[in-house]
Design a protein around this nucleic acid. Structure first.
Lengths: 377, 377
DNA sequence: CTTAAAGATGAATCAATGG
DNA sequence: TCCATTGATTCATCTTTAA
């Protein structure tokens, strides 16, 4: 069996093995309708842009621009494009897990219609992400600004879906320790990465760069998640998913694209688990009760805690509460009360004196986590 | 009379002086309906974003984020926002000149609906422009990417409107002599530029930076053009228009915003005409016929012309055509034919020998333009 | 062999004028 | 309104060819 299997026909799906890591040949909506409810974690969709080009365009040197004039990008009018968009988005939504998210990429030709329909169908927009191209095609006639970006919409299934995956700390670490912004800079897909046929012609007119898909998956999926791409094309989504230890499902109509994608994905070598281990966000780390610091002996009852400027001093009680005179409470409540605030992060507010210097009790929490790690980790 | 006049009521408009460089108080659609057809060159619109905020948001230090929760940003649902959007866009379109363009700014909350409705109404999208903020507000909860941009849509009135203003050369010159891209980097409006009331509170929650409006106007208007802003707010559009020698028309409902904008605009000092002069492209320069070079004596019949590498030689005939052996035609047609191309710019393709070196005949055209300039220029 | 020059190309809604 | 003519216009990157 090859690394990439393909299902021409899907009968009622019994086990995951039937469709996971395969390319399903066929119409996008029909294929989606044969997948089970709530079965994929993330959808990445690169639908037709409906470019509506009229005549030929030449460069100043008179060479012809190889435009996207494929049959699959032709729609009668906006209404036809809207109907197509509504249909696939609706089918995709059924397949998405309640805490799943969807990415859709487009340009100004189609992205406004796509975004409005997503809102109408109940998707809740989380961000619009701008892919800034380092090397976009120029505007040859000098009649507009150089179209130097594309737009991705990232949305959850529902307004109240709060449990979606967002690897905040991983993104922050990848961005020099400041929050990842909504504008991303990547080159377009050229060179060795671009798939070519035996004649040296590009296999697919709109192949996306793997770096773009990698950031999408690293930000919004966990290892082992299922990523569905209903417009699979040359299979960038599958290639990146396999490399990053995620499962993929592709849907594609054109056999030539399927063949190229299968060959491409078969050659991908998955990264090792060690390489893949996500920098886990603090929120995902095991929760440590303040009391457990006392229980584990990292902190003794009666120890004095100070704020960073030693304006206040409190003492630790054996039950895991903190007290200043008559006032007592959790490290958070007491910190808030003495400052006159609604809330306070006691882990970073309170400090313990070690060899004359103050260190936040968060350091002790980190030590406690080490202790609690399973053997062998 | 103050520099900024205000019309509370507009009766049938007779002369431009009635509404030019004024702020019209009232509902956006009603006010637009009282302006004449096809009377403004450019519209800049910063409509309510329909933010749909639910609860209060606090920073990590527990301070409250001053969110946009004004009454004018509240809509019942998407349908209500769409109806509002369709109404003002339709009214704005009537007022726009056939070769006018419109800019609309928004965020992911509203821009997709706005863009789709613009397409539905017949506007033809020219670009979507990304305003990348140098100093965006962080995402305090760490549940999304930092929302670091806003989107502007730039559109012509109709698909076949080709005569809109785009100061290509000026934009290119302002961008280190490469084409201006669709992503622009500017700080948000803070500091001295941000209007504050007597309490030190910001006058308007979403005041746009003047630099953003300046690029909008420098790219898509000419001096003396009329720029309409149907959501005038604190009057950034008016302030920049006045400084750049453009006329403005503002529409605004809230008296407090009108008062602040009037005071602000009154203090603006317009730039000098010399400073404002646009960098022009060849396109805008007077047309010179090749024959006129012969008629004016700059080129003698029988002169040999060469391409830059001397692969071909042709001779100038008295009627303003060019010939190689039996083949003859305009400088453009002959250049195209011998190269086997559909088109060719004869002005830059053909050269004349001057003291042993080849110079493009475009240089002669420049000389002819000098000669033809009116006296005193 | 190296290095320089020349050619190719990418999701593109890409003219204006005069008869 | 249609049609022929004029003539304005490109950036970053990768590949191929020339020196």
């Amino acid at each position: 069996m090859s690394a990439v299997r393909r299902l021409e026909v899907i009968s009622p799906v019994s086990t995951k093995a039937d469709w996971l890591d395969t390319i399903i040949k066929g119409d996008c909506v029909a294929a989606l309708n044969r997948l089970p409810d709530k079965s994929v974690d993330v959808i990445f969709a690169d639908p037709p842009y409906n470019l509506q080009l009229s005549g030929a365009l030449h460069r100043p040197d008179q060479s012809l621009v190889d435009a996207v004039d494929d049959e699959w990008d032709q729609f009668e009018n906006f209404a036809a494009y809207d109907a197509f968009t509504r249909a696939w988005l609706l089918a995709a939504r059924r397949v998405l897990k309640p805490n799943g998210t969807i990415w859709v990429i487009g340009s100004y030709h189609n992205i406004f219609r796509v975004g409005a329909i997503m809102q109408d169908l109940g998707f809740w927009l989380l961000n619009d992400i701008i892919w800034r191209k380092t090397n976009p095609m120029p505007n040859f006639r000098g009649r507009r600004f150089q179209n130097a970006h594309e737009t991705m919409i990232w949305a959850s299934r529902d307004r109240d879906a709060k449990g979606y995956t967002f690897n905040y700390e991983a993104m922050k670490a990848a961005n020099d320790d400041v929050q990842m912004r909504s504008d991303w800079l990547f080159p377009i897909c050229t060179g060795k990465e671009r798939l070519k046929d035996e004649n040296g012609d590009k296999v697919h007119p709109t192949q996306k760069p793997e770096a773009l898909l990698a950031r999408v998956m690293l930000s919004s999926t966990k290892p082992g998640d299922v990523v569905l791409d209903p417009f699979f094309g040359s299979g960038t989504t599958g290639a990146v998913a396999k490399r990053l230890g995620r499962h993929f499902v592709g849907i594609e109509r054109e056999q030539s694209y399927i063949d190229a994608a299968q060959e491409r994905i078969a050659q991908i070598e998955p990264l090792s688990g060690e390489t893949l281990r996500l920098m886990t966000s603090k929120k995902a780390e095991p929760r440590i009760a303040f009391a457990s610091l006392i229980e584990s002996g990292l902190l003794k009852p009666g120890t004095q805690l100070f704020d960073s400027r030693r304006r206040w001093a409190a003492h630790v009680r054996a039950d895991g509460t903190l007290a200043i005179g008559d006032e007592a409470g959790s490290i958070h409540r007491l910190g808030a009360r003495i400052q006159g605030l609604d809330a306070c992060n006691g882990w970073t507010f309170w400090h313990v004196e070690v060899e004359g210097t103050l260190k936040p009790i968060d350091d002790l929490r980190q030590k406690a986590r080490q202790t609690m790690l399973p053997a062998g980790a």
